[in-house]
Design a protein around this nucleic acid. Structure first.
Length: 1020
RNA sequence: GGGCGAUUAGCUCAGCUGGCUAGAGCGUUCGGAUCACACCCGAAAGGUCAGGGGUUCAAGUCCCUUAUCGCCCACCA
């Protein structure tokens, strides 16, 4: 097969071949036994909710860059790919689809069937995601692909849960969840939307009474007569039935005298205390008195928790049934029980009015933000429920320490703040979810009665037999009255005379089983134990990702080699949810941090400034871009966008599938189709998981931002073709590139620039400044190599004496450029490399680029930075400026583009004159001119146009006679110089400047002033 | 309300620890089918660095403040 490069660059013919070659040769699959220091990245596992968008593309491109760079640097490099089951989100999309297509709820199909359907979905989108990553060029080790629900991860999840349970870090507690009273399910915050809703603010009078038990006497306070009732304002009057306190601000003179007294709750006759709570109550809002309904309002629940265990502890009453009606838990609610909350509100308002606790004037229109369920579109209710929690304090402390002591570093650093402040709160982590898609909580529970000395009833007797069978595979926890009854121990201790067996009374017994064990579970079921129906928060499994993917809890060679991993690359939105938790579980399970660096990549926004997201449906499929621009172009463009700022905006257009017209993408994602303005085709918008129909084909997206990358790749392709064609016709110098003292100025300059670029790339990569890395390579290749060195090499290549060495340098530079760029644009560089290997198998730079080169670029060593030449980098730009000045004059005077002009040059001194003379040919070629004289202090020839390069080198172009143009030029130049002189003079006459600024700067200013004045004098 | 960030050329963005003529790509204008490349080459125009204060010999860069926008978190009885 020929590796010859086609005349035009076509990514679609290059990319699949290169990728397949890497796969075939197992370039991505490392062996832990191989030499080389470990380098490992674990992918932030994409959710299987849908396909990847450009946000994922940038994240994965950057990971691939680090992976490829380190592979080239000789590290034993592993990039672990994988997927996240994304509990709530995935179940939600499948349930939504079920509803739309079959009008069924999950209860209609049942747990097992729903989970099967979700697996089907996972298969479809999981495969899609992996193929997207491959199109992108990700050099992941696909043989190690993980999924957060696979057996390996499940084992890690079970082990971690068991460990936490055993250590007493998992407990059962109450929590307010968002309850969908229509679907009878709790839903996540993500599935809520709030809408300003017109409602009322009801002002209800609560009579104040002396402390409970002393009768309902209106309050007299000292000599002053205080109010005998409190007016509280509420948007939800129906919840008053479950009020358990009224809160006021302790500093509020209107009410603080009443703290410790009570109110008689209207309609129920219950006495509830007046308490002080400076956090809940805003003195400036409303009446300054707030009703507290802990079971039905998140803020009020927080009040309940704050006062728990203090003298002002308050009660908590749940008013609601699971379908959103008033329950019958309290006798005083009897006239309302069974009513929906809406109906109860109506009746309560009527009753309050009738009984004089409120007048019509106390009902005022109000607009409030009401939360609705995205799925059922009904108002959600806060609902008190039992949940599992992880205690954070013991886990958080070492995780905080790891970042405080710089064992883990964030890039950019500022993101550590978010991590530290969130973890610092140490709020317990609710880990149970009322879902079916996820890791089932491995706890079996029974409520039973124990009698002293023996387990009394049948189910508990069954327990005894279960216990006999099991080894160290379970932990028992027995609780009563919300207090942990400490009997949690291993089996060998779990025998009489353990205090457990002396307990007499009702007990809730929880058994956590370490590993999946069907036999044991069957025994438990027989003994009346029921497995918890809930599943774990999806973050519970992803928190283990860096060690679970490497095989933990088994002691695998992978784990030994690659844990801790090296860098975690992710978006800033999950620093708390994910990064912090990985650090905690990593330290807890492994005794060591999961990674040493956390690099945060920018968030990709759409053209309207909204975050690209799967659920929002404004994501752009990277494959769309790969099809229009190529994967390398996509990668390069994204890499240059990876700056330290946090956002990157991405304007996109929809391509009309019929006429290819580019259509502006509408902002609202509620618009499902667009119409092509040209051919009037109706197009389905590519929103998340939408697919086209025959009537409305799916549009695809593109963006001209990626022209940047495509143009660069084309340029690289063409320049390579040029260099290769030169190499084909020039005999190789042996040994490869003996770069002796015969180097010309351009040779020295370009090699120096090359070495500087390597150093810049290294530094940028060390700082995770991917944009700087890409730009350093871009500038070197295009501006220096193509625009100057290749042009300068053209005459050299025609000179038989100089051609072999020039060719060797070109070969080395192409080789080095390909190595430097490979991590960013792997496909095209690999393809060119193959051809270069054929055309010039021996090449290199001693000590920098190895020779013979490796067969595949992906395995080629990263270039070592060589010496730079200060003098070459000082002198060559002066020649560039001379060329620039001549070109400028040619343009300004409209010289015939093909005809050389006659030029004389007056450099500022003998040394400059020599350097100019030495490179006369180069200047003549690049500026299309013939140089007649190079001499300091040259008077201006007659009929010549004048320009200045480097501030002090006069250049005269003869034969360009255009008095008007000259006048205009001179005038403009005079103005520039005059203003520059004025500002320099002002600066130099500033005593503070001359006294305090560095001497070097002052000298420079003086020199520049002299130059400018001299030039102005010449202009007359 | 708390936190983070942004505001620099028409657009999208660089500009590190303050240093003297603020850069790039695209777009625009002018010129160019030259034997690597028109997805190209050469040249040019275009910016009181969001507004206002302050520190300093010197501010796009540091500090304060105002405005607008974005994201994350907490969300107002």
């Amino acid at each position: 097969m020929s590796t010859e490069l086609s005349k035009t660059y076509d990514p679609s013919s290059v990319e699949p071949l290169a990728y397949q070659t890497w796969l075939d040769e197992k370039c991505f699959t490392p062996d832990p036994a191989n030499p080389g220091p470990p380098y490992c990245i674990v992918i932030p596992p994409p959710n299987v909710t849908g396909a990847l968008h450009l946000g994922h593309a940038i994240n994965n491109t950057l990971q691939d860059i680090l992976t490829r760079v380190h592979r080239m640097r000789g590290f034993n490099t592993l990039w672990v790919p994988g997927l996240d089951h994304a509990g709530i989100a995935t179940q939600a999309v499948v349930e939504k689809q079920l509803k739309e297509k079959e009008n069924k709820t999950r209860h209609d199909v049942g747990r097992e069937a729903l989970v099967d359907r979700i697996w089907t979905w996972k298969q479809q989108y999981g495969d899609r995601i992996l193929s997207q990553l491959q199109r992108l060029g990700a050099s992941c080790d696909w043989s190690r692909t993980r999924f957060t629900l696979d057996d390996m991860c499940a084992k890690a999840v079970r082990e971690t849960f068991f460990k936490l349970f055993k250590d007493g870090l998992i407990y059962r507690g109450k929590r307010l969840v968002n309850w969908d009273t229509h679907l009878h399910t709790s839903i996540s915050d993500d599935e809520l939307y709030t809408e300003p809703t017109k409602t009322n603010l009801w002002h209800i009078k609560y009579p104040i009474v002396e402390e409970s038990g002393t009768g309902f006497q209106p309050v007299q306070h000292g000599l002053q007569t205080h109010a005998t009732e409190m007016t509280i304002a509420t948007t939800r009057p129906e919840t008053m039935l479950a009020d358990t306190a009224v809160a006021v601000h302790p500093d509020d003179p209107r009410w603080n005298w009443a703290i410790g007294k009570s109110v008689r709750l209207p309609l129920t006759n219950r006495l509830i205390p007046i308490i002080a709570d400076p956090i809940l109550v805003d003195m400036t809002f409303g009446s300054g008195a707030v009703k507290v309904t802990p079971a039905h309002d998140p803020n009020d629940y927080a009040v309940y928790q704050r006062h728990l265990g203090t003298p002002t502890e308050i009660a908590i009453l749940n008013l609601m049934t699971h379908d959103g009606r008033v329950n019958d838990a309290h006798p005083s609610w009897s006239s309302y029980s069974g009513l929906t909350f809406a109906a109860a509100r109506k009746k309560i308002v009527e009753d309050l009015l009738a009984q004089g606790f409120m007048t019509e004037a106390d009902i005022k229109p109000h607009e409030a933000n009401v939360s609705f369920s995205d799925r059922s579109k009904t108002a959600i209710q806060p609902y008190l429920s039992d949940q599992w929690f992880v205690k954070m304090a013991p886990l958080a402390e070492p995780a905080l320490e790891a970042v405080r002591t710089n064992k883990i570093k964030f890039h950019p650093e500022r993101h550590a703040q978010q991590y530290l402040s969130w973890l610092g709160e140490k709020r317990d982590w609710p880990i149970s979810r009322q879902l079916w898609w996820g890791h089932r909580i491995p706890v079996w529970t029974v409520r039973t009665h124990l009698k002293k000395g023996y387990i009394s009833n049948e189910s508990a007797a069954g327990l005894a037999s279960v216990l006999q069978k099991s080894s160290e595979s379970f932990v028992i926890l027995a609780t009563e009255n919300g207090i942990r009854f400490d009997v949690a121990l291993y089996r060998e201790d779990f025998l009489p005379p353990h205090p457990f067996f002396d307990y007499d009374g009702e007990l809730t017994i929880q058994i956590c089983i370490r590993e999946s064990n069907e036999e044991l579970e069957a025994e438990l079921a027989k003994a009346g134990f029921i497995q918890d129906p809930d599943v774990l928060d999806t973050w519970f499994s992803s928190a283990l990702w860096p060690h679970s993917t490497l095989g933990w809890p088994e002691k695998t060679p992978d784990l030994a080699k690659w844990y801790p991993t090296s860098v975690l690359l992710t978006g800033r939105d999950i620093i708390t949810l994910w990064v912090a938790r990985m650090v905690m579980t990593g330290i807890y399970n492994m005794g060591d941090i999961p990674f040493t660096d956390v690099a945060i990549n920018p968030t990709i926004l759409d053209e309207y400034g909204k975050r690209m997201s799967k659920t929002a449906g404004n994501g752009v499929d990277p494959v769309d871009i790969i099809d229009t621009h190529g994967a390398d172009a996509l990668r390069l463009t994204l890499t240059t966008m990876a700056t330290e700022t946090q956002d990157a905006r991405m304007p996109v257009k929809i391509i009309c599938p019929k006429c290819q017209t580019l259509i502006t993408n509408p902002e609202s994602n509620k618009i499902p189709t667009v119409t092509c303005p040209k051919c009037k085709t109706v197009i389905t918008r590519p929103l998340g998981t939408t697919t086209g129909t025959p009537e409305a084909p799916l549009g695809r997206m593109t963006s001209d931002k990626f022209d940047f990358g495509r143009n660069f790749c084309t340029k690289l392709w063409n320049a390579s073709r040029f260099i290769l064609s030169n190499l084909e016709t020039t005999p190789p110098q042996s040994p490869p590139t003996a770069l002796g003292g015969s180097l010309s100025l351009p040779d020295q300059w370009i090699l120096s620039r090359f070495n500087r670029t390597i150093a810049e790339a290294n530094e940028a990569l060390a700082n995770f400044r991917f944009d700087q890395y890409a730009r350093a390579c871009y500038t070197f290749f295009w501006d220096d190599l193509c625009d100057w060195y290749i042009e300068a090499s053209k005459p050299a290549m025609k000179d038989p004496a100089r051609a072999p060495q020039t060719a060797s340098i070109l070969a080395a530079l192409l080789d080095g450029t390909l190595r430097l760029l490979h991590p960013i644009i792997p496909f095209i560089t690999e393809t060119i490399w193959w051809r270069l290997n054929e055309v010039r198998p021996t090449r290199g730079l001693p000590g920098q680029l190895d020779c013979p080169p490796s067969k595949r670029l992906i395995n080629a060593p990263w270039p070592a930075a060589g010496p730079t030449s200060e003098s070459a980098e000082h002198v060559f730009p002066k020649l560039q400026a001379i060329v620039g000045t001549i070109r400028n004059l040619r343009n300004d005077y409209k010289a015939d583009p093909k005809k050389p002009v006659t030029v004389s040059i007056s450099p500022p001194g003998d040394e400059a004159a020599r350097a100019t003379s030495d490179n006369r040919q180069l200047i003549e070629l690049l500026a299309i001119c013939t140089i007649t004289t190079i001499q300091p202090n040259l008077p201006q020839p007659a009929n010549s146009a004048r320009g200045t390069a480097n501030g002090n080198c006069d250049i005269y172009v003869e034969g360009l006679i255009d008095p008007d143009a000259e006048k205009q030029r001179n005038q403009k130049r005079k103005e520039e110089l005059t203003s520059e002189i004025a500002s320099l003079k002002a600066r130099l006459s500033n005593e503070g400047y001359v006294a305090k600024a560095p001497v070097k700067l002052v000298e420079q200013s003086k020199a520049r002033l002299a130059e400018a004045e001299a030039e102005l004098a010449k202009l007359g």
